[in-house]
Structure formats: C-alpha cells, structure tokens
Amino acid sequence: MHARIQIASICFAIGMVVLVVELVRRRRLSEKYALLWMLAASALLLLAVWQHGLALISQAVGIYYPPTAFLVIAFSFALLLLLNFSIAASRLAEQTRMLAQRVALLETELATQRLRAPAVEVPEPLVPATTVARHSSNRASEQHTL
C-alpha cells in the first residue's frame, strides 16, 4: 500500500479517536456509545498501521487492493453503529411511551382527587416550575461528575 494512503488512513483513525475522546470529555457523548466508536477507531488505526494484517485480511476475503478492505471494514463498523442507534432509538421510544402512560394516569388520578376534595386547602404553595427544573438539572450534572 502506498505510503500516502497509509498516512491518510492513520490520520483519519487518529482524528476519530481524538474527536471521540474530546466529545466524551465535554460530556457531549456518553461513555456507553463512545465505547463502540472507540472500538471502531482503534480497529481502523490498528489496520492502518499494521499493513501486513490488512493485506492478510484482504487476501482472505478476496479483495485485491488492501485499501478497499480498509474501507469495507470502516463501512461495516458504520453499519454496526447505525444498528446500535436503531436499538437505542427503539428503547428510548419504549421508555417514552411508558412515561407518557404513567404521566397520563397520574394526571387523571390527581384531577380526580382534586375533584373529590375541593374544600381542602393546600397549605404550602407548589414549588415554582423553574426551581424544580434547576434542581433536577443540578442533580443530573452532579451525577455526571461522580
């Protein structure tokens, strides 16, 4: 394989690793998803450096031009990641659905209870929504730092 292609692939793989680490550092990407990306980037880096390995793999699957094998492997990782996102999206949809159902049932319960006991005065005013939001976001970030 030409040195130029090798250098380009190494730069590409290193760039990917750096980007993923940086995103994790800034908490834009959770560790759970970062792991798969890191795995993909490290595998590509390994193959970019270890030319003999790449040649062996391309020979084994009948690809004559090793850089194509590099692309094929990169593409396979991309497919794997996409599938992973679909799984994550399905799970999130499921969780959102459950939350929506719970909220709807709780709201109904609350409304019916208010109907039932209109004379009772609420002693403490409800906490303003903004305060609640700030509290919960604080707690979320505390968990992150742990």
Binding site: R97, A100, Q101, V103, A104, L105, E107, T108
Partner: peptide
C-alpha cells in the same frame, strides 16, 4: 385519560 402525545392505538389501549 389524556396522553401527552400520540402513542398510537397500541399504546393507548395499553394505558
């Protein structure tokens, strides 16, 4: 019982 957004018939009946 008002769902906060449209869940589709399955989600509604499950509620």
């Amino acid at each position: 019982v008002t769902l906060p957004f449209n869940l589709g018939i399955g989600g509604a009946v499950q509620t």
